[in-house]
Amino acid sequence: MRGVQLLFLLQLCTSCVLTLAVPRVPVPKRREVYGNGRIFDITHRVNAKMPTWGSRDGLGQFVWLVASMKNGSLVNASEMKLSAHTGTHIDAPSHNYEEYYEAGFDIDTLDLEVLNDNTQRILRLQSKITKSKTMIQRHYFLLLLLFTLLHSITASSSNAAYPTVDDDCSCGASSTDDDLLLFPERNEVYGNGRIIDISHRYVSDMPSWNSEEGIGMFIRLFESLKNGSIANFSGFKLSVHSGTHVDAPGHVYDHYYDAGFDVDTLDLEVLNGNKLRTQCCWSSTVIVPRESNITAEVMKSLEIPKGVRRVLFRTLNTDRKLMFKKEFDTSYVGFLEDGAKWLVENTDIKFVGEFSTP
């Protein structure tokens, strides 16, 4: 069984799923505010002139096109190389503390419930702060506790995530200090199910397109606290099509690539939303019949109601644990052409993806 996996971001040009005819040159749009202020994008777009630690020349070239549709490739595929300390990012506990580095505390160990909250709760917090000086002091104390928590959260990681810079470093091993034993833990569910992490952690054995060896060594430590640096700094190099990710329009359509449609042009209001219905915008997870690609017949049988805009499909790929096998498996389940056509013509879906967990 061989499926052609089509993960479309249909909100950009629904008709482009069915035809490559382009009536006019598309113009990329980049916004910071979505949904009348429901979503604010506070990230900085990574670019060659972006400042980088210890450099006067900026980031420089950080992305290369390694496969091109113009040269006969099925898709446009890029590779990036840059410091993990670039642009808008979160520092891992191991960035500043050697004992956390040795215990393997990367950003995958942070508590997503601390990092995520809703606007209403933030507004209530702001209202309380303005009412009472005592409340200000209490919330200031709370912020200090949260800051401390960010540096003490535990989650699991492997040795491969942090390769050593010298033979004496035992990265990934728990500290043997009598007063401090660090045991990383990794959670997928936070806040009694309020947040579910469906992303896959990057490891060297993660499958990579058309590779039998996985993504291989993708991250290296180039500055170390042990060697006198003020912090641990890592750099990574890998395909932008690795692990849990969102495909840019330019990945599968060459005219979008030429026009500069990267992931920064995607609509965050389409990509983000509650699982429950909010203003006729639904998110849903559906289970695809086993031993079947996603065909028109399968799509019809799923009976996805009108109004649903985001769908995660749970397929046989999950049962087979394909994301946990190093060798790329070409027999994965995916959309067939008639299934994609039926989706466009009969549903309100603007975003599709695959829900794949252990």
Rank of each mutant, 00 (worst) to 15 (best):
R201T: 14
I90N: 11
L238D: 01
F222S: 06
T315E: 08
L266Y: 03
T14I: 05
K81S: 10
G235I: 11
L82D: 00
Y253R: 04
Y256V: 01
L316C: 03
S301H: 09
H151C: 05
L10N: 07
W282K: 02
I196Y: 05
G228R: 03
V27Y: 07
S283R: 07
L225A: 01
G60C: 05
S175H: 04
L343T: 10
T244F: 00
D348T: 12
F8I: 07
E113P: 01
R309M: 10
A84Y: 06
D117L: 10
Y332L: 14
L271Y: 03
V252S: 12
T88S: 15
R30D: 01
L142Q: 13
N232F: 08
S83H: 02
G87E: 06
R220M: 11
K341L: 01
W342P: 07
S242C: 12
G214M: 06
V352P: 04
P207K: 08
K49H: 14
S15R: 12
M299H: 03
G235F: 13
L10T: 08
N118M: 04
H44R: 15
Y202P: 03
T86V: 09
G193C: 08
P23A: 13
I39F: 13
E102Q: 15
A103M: 04
S208E: 13
Y97F: 14
A92S: 15
F355I: 02
S55P: 02
I304W: 06
I198D: 09
P207Q: 08
L65C: 07
F62M: 01
E32P: 00
V66S: 13
L9R: 13
R30S: 08
C281K: 15
H251G: 00
K226C: 09
A248D: 01
A92W: 00
L150N: 12
I215T: 02
M50C: 02
D258A: 13
M206E: 08
V22E: 13
L146I: 15
G334S: 10
F236L: 14
V17F: 00
V22S: 07
